[in-house]
Simulated scan of single mutants.
Amino acid sequence: MLSYYHIHTPPPSSPNSQCKSTLVQTIHAPLPLVWSVVRQFDKPQLYKKFVRSCSLICGDSGVGSIREINVVSGLPAQTSIERLDTIDDELHVMSFSIIDGDHRLRNYHSTIIVRAADEVGKTVVTESYTVDKPSGTSVEDTCLFIDTIIKLNLKSLAYVTEKMFRST
């Protein structure tokens, strides 16, 4: 049933202009702790190191809320405006879409699922996304760029939550 959330229906565009990927990270911390960090739509900077600051423009971190992300210097953007599409505390699912910003990512949609691993005390986080390929670049380069950012975010999530778990 959870795989349903990772099925992104691309907008009506050429399939050769769409980039998509799924990344997985195992974390040595319990699911409730990991989910408590991931689900904070208004505080992605808790683990996303490329986020300098975040403010809610609309909503209370529930579905339909909109946040403005200010990214660290060095990336090819300064801001990203994002909408929370799904938050499910029972299934541990969150999805969001980028709806505006001074970057080249169009029709970006991401889903994060947090689930207990087979091994007690471990958690598996899966993040999938789809995005249109910006003009002047390839699908491969677009995927490589976004995959790199998400991998770093997932590794940072592991570091932060494992450190929190060890200190309890």
Rank of each mutant, 00 (worst) to 15 (best):
S61T: 06
K49F: 00
Q40M: 05
C58T: 13
Q78C: 03
K122Y: 02
M94S: 10
L33N: 00
S73W: 01
Y47L: 03
V34S: 05
S73D: 04
T126R: 12
D85I: 10
K20I: 08
F96W: 11
F41A: 01
P76M: 11
S55Q: 15
I112N: 08
G101N: 02
Q40P: 00
I99P: 09
A29V: 08
M94F: 04
V114K: 13
I112T: 15
D60R: 15
R115N: 13
P30M: 10
W35V: 03
Y108T: 07
D100P: 07
G59N: 13
N70A: 13
L84T: 04
C54D: 09
T126P: 00
V124D: 11
I112W: 07
F41W: 10
S65D: 07
S110I: 06
D42A: 12
V124I: 15
P76V: 06
S36R: 11
L46S: 14
V120Q: 14
K43Q: 14
G101Q: 02
D42Q: 13
I113S: 13
S110C: 15
L31K: 15
V51A: 07
R104W: 01
G74Q: 13
D88N: 14
V34D: 07
I27M: 10
S53K: 08
E82F: 06
S110Y: 05
D60M: 11
I27K: 14
K122I: 00
K43R: 14
F41D: 00
V71Y: 03
T111H: 07
T79A: 03
P76K: 13
R106M: 02
H103C: 09
L23A: 00
P32Y: 10
I87E: 08
Y108W: 09
L84E: 05
Q78N: 14
V93L: 09
L33T: 08
D42L: 00
R67G: 07
S61Y: 05
F41T: 05
I66D: 03
V38N: 01
S21F: 04
S80Q: 05
H92G: 01
T111Q: 04
S36M: 04
T22M: 10
L75P: 01
P32F: 10
S95T: 12
V51D: 06
R115K: 15
S97D: 07
D85M: 12
V63E: 14
V38T: 06
H92N: 14
A117E: 05
E82T: 04
W35I: 02
A116E: 15
I99D: 08
L84I: 01
D88S: 02
P44D: 10
L105D: 03
G64C: 08
A116L: 01
G64K: 10
D100I: 02
L75V: 09
I113G: 03
S53Y: 05
D118C: 04
G101R: 04
T86Q: 09
C58E: 14
N107G: 05
Q40N: 08
G64A: 08
F50Y: 05
C19D: 02
Q78W: 02
D88G: 02
N70T: 15
V34H: 13
I27V: 15
Y108S: 07
I87M: 11
S61Q: 08
N107D: 12
I87Q: 04
K48C: 03
D102W: 02
I66V: 15
D100E: 11
S65M: 14
G74R: 15
H103P: 01
I57E: 15
